[in-house]
Design a protein around this nucleic acid. Structure first.
Lengths: 337, 337
DNA sequence: CTGAAAGCGCTAACAT
DNA sequence: ATGTTAGCGCTTTCAG
């Protein structure tokens, strides 16, 4: 049986409200009384019960973090950074995994809403209208997506996709595939759009750069592996993948088909997960500042306190990291068979 | 302002205790009354406030999960499985990252203790005596370690290490290095001990198998990378690493030194993280059932309710997965068992 | 600066 | 089967 505020009050000879103040409003209590109280509290191993405190203050000092798939290496650095940032502000984090299922995602928000001061929705698969509805049940910050009227943190995938296509075009590639991710992904749409748009501004007259989209695919190594044959048949000389996992799976699949990377086909990923510098060939990829995004999201959530309709949008820069999976394209050949 | 039990009571014309029972003791209430209550509750979007409930029942329906490093790919599958299992039992999970720091770990247990019904301590770096002390503040289940008197879930790393050494010995390796993990790791000690013991039972008379331990090292890709030169100088023909990450880092480091795997040196990892079948060469490794461990740990924690001194110990089998990072040793024995 | 009293939302005896 | 009452541990007026 843990010590309660009453035990501390009795042991230090003051009223419970004084003990309460010693913890939550130090300036309202005599320094001597305060230190005496804190000392007894320490001795008894007393810690204020947050549930009781929450009941009256309305603030739980907890936040929720909902991700599509904890096991996808994109998320852990973000989770880690968010948890760390939250803890430094004396918040605890509920982590929940929707398993890529929008319905589960929605239910998780509802289930967590009462227990937290706000929820971070990372890479949500939900429709905008539903997210807007949910934002009335809990303060929401959306990561990796933009929803009108809601605070969000995104990484600049458009710019990243553009850099990737520019890099490939400079290497001489003219027929580029975009290996798309899951249906309903905001990021997927942004990448496709930006990559296609970038292609139009590149290449000379009579020497167009073409980007062709494939998908949807599962955003996993297997998703890339399975797509290898399709990529091979399509005859692209370079491929941009929705994420690193798919890119690595693709490279693996291509190897099985006797296609070498980067000699025969160049491959670019997105994310720069830890793994990407450990594979061979090292993966050329668009680095996403996931840890910074996690911190920024917690920041936004906690900064604005109770005011749920902040519309702040943060965009974090991405950066192309060139490793060994990209190389020169076919010279003087705009459209290889 | 979310609906409270009082709103539901008023709207459905019953007393609040009836509403309470409709949710937490359905058999005590008239089915018709119950369905009417649930209907109004649904309409008002009412959800019982868990903090208020916890205050009186003493059960929060939350559990804590403390890991050394969320970003280490060993943990996410375990976290994911534990969270899923917990949610199916209507529990939410606080995830916290100790950053490999025992002091942080201890503080996390203390901070979480009041808010949860129990805590899963995964790969704890804390001394036994401290863990035992903490077990008085919260129900604890220890994963990846055994602590006298506490329930625990471990994967059979001893058997795994033995299989690995046997595999290498059969391939003809006689001088094997063990690339150790972090200081204070229970798993590290177990592996070292089992590998050394296995070596003694192998090899013929006048043909001993030797296992030499190196370390401690950081349990990361960099840890393995940095150790490559030391491994090379020591002249081992095969190496068992504390985990896959280190094994992959080691392979990378050896490649830099012009040492080929498996032609010049064989490497075996432990864990079978997702990454290990995506690298080249594919990593031979001891597969750890991390997801099963996560589920089992939640199971143990919730099964025993309030009785904190269960001493159940679960050991989950491991399995050697042979891929391409191991090959014949200097004796040229190409075809094992 | 400290104490007294009320009450957050809910459950658990105890009545009826 | 339902209502009444007390109170979980804490914060927050309001007095003094």
């Amino acid at each position: 049986m843990p010590a309660t505020i009453r035990d501390v009050a009795r042991a230090s000879g003051v009223h419970i409200s004084t003990v309460s103040r010693a913890f939550s409003a130090p300036q309202l209590v005599n320094p001597e009384t305060r230190s005496k109280v804190l000392e007894t509290a320490e001795k008894l191993g007393y810690r204020p019960n947050r549930a009781a405190r929450a009941l009256i203050t309305g603030r739980t000092h907890n936040i929720g973090l909902i991700v599509a798939d904890i096991a996808n290496p994109f998320f852990p650095p973000l989770i880690k950074a968010a948890e760390r940032e939250a803890r430094h502000r004396d918040y605890h984090v509920f982590v929940a995994d929707s398993n890529e299922d929008p319905a589960v995602e929605e239910e998780l928000v509802r289930a967590l809403a009462k227990q937290v001061d706000g929820i971070l929705l990372v890479s949500p698969r939900l429709a905008n209208s539903i997210i807007e509805g949910l934002s009335r049940e809990a303060a929401l910050v959306v990561v990796n997506r933009q929803v009108p009227g809601l605070p969000s943190v995104v990484m600049d995938v458009s710019q990243g996709a553009r850099s990737a296509i520019e890099h490939l075009a400079e290497l001489g590639h003219r027929s580029i595939g975009y290996l798309g991710g899951p249906r309903g992904s905001w990021t997927n749409r942004e990448i496709r759009r930006a990559a296609t748009a970038a292609a139009r501004t590149l290449g000379g007259p009579g020497d167009p750069v073409e980007v062709t989209a494939l998908g949807p695919n599962a955003p996993t190594g297997d998703g890339g592996l399975i797509a290898a044959e399709q990529v091979h048949r399509a005859g692209f000389t370079a491929v941009l993948a929705y994420n690193d996992l798919m890119a690595i799976g693709l490279i693996e699949g291509l190897a099985t088909l006797g296609v070498r990377v980067p000699q025969d086909v160049s491959v670019v990923g997105i994310d720069d997960i830890a793994l990407s510098r450990l594979t061979r060939p090292g993966l050329t990829t668009v680095a996403n500042p996931t840890a910074a995004a996690g911190r920024a999201a917690v920041d936004m959530l906690l900064q604005h306190g109770d005011d749920r309709r902040t519309t702040g949008q943060i965009t974090l820069a991405t950066e192309l990291v060139i490793r060994d999976s990209t190389g020169p394209g076919p010279q003087g050949n705009a459209d290889p068979g």
